[in-house]
């Protein structure tokens, strides 16, 4: 069983989004996604300051098995990336919703409307299993 925390938003591409008190968002991949990928050995993250369109590939996660793109769930500007992943990519496996976060974005106004809530994402995962 994959964990799907109720306080996060999600995308159909198995990313999670945490809306923070300052209006910025943190982004990572879900427990289901890390489990499907297997043990991560490399994470490539965007440069802070970069502007992203919704759906644009913005990070790469490589596991022992394969490489996967991570897509910007919403349009916005990169304000921080998780530099700890350069040395410890397996933080994404061990703690996908916490220390395994990928990047923080300052989203464009109104960009968050199309995201899935936890129950909608849970249904999507259940259908995939």
């Amino acid at each position: 069983m994959s964990a799907v925390p109720g306080d996060l938003k999600y995308t159909k591409d198995h990313e999670w989004i945490r809306i923070e008190s300052d209006g910025a968002i943190a982004i990572g991949i879900t427990d289901h996604a890390q489990h499907q990928l297997g043990e991560l050995v490399f994470v490539e993250l965007p440069e802070p300051g970069r502007s992203l369109r919704e759906g644009e590939p913005c990070a790469v996660v490589e596991s022992v098995k394969a490489a996967s793109d991570v897509y910007a769930p919403v349009a916005g500007t990169v304000i921080a990336v998780n530099t700890a992943l350069a040395g410890e990519p397996n933080l994404v496996n061990a703690s996908p919703y916490d220390t395994g976060w990928l990047l923080r974005l300052q989203p464009q106004p109104g960009a968050l409307a199309g995201l899935l809530d936890a129950s909608a994402y849970q249904q999507l995962v259940d259908a995939a299993d």
């Binding site: 050995v41 490539e44 790469v60 490589e62 394969a66 490489a67 350069a86």
Partner: peptide, 11 residues
């Protein structure tokens, strides 16, 4: 082949 650090994973 040895990949330079930070280059990703060769497949």
């Amino acid at each position: 082949l040895l990949l330079a650090a930070g280059g990703g994973v060769m497949r």
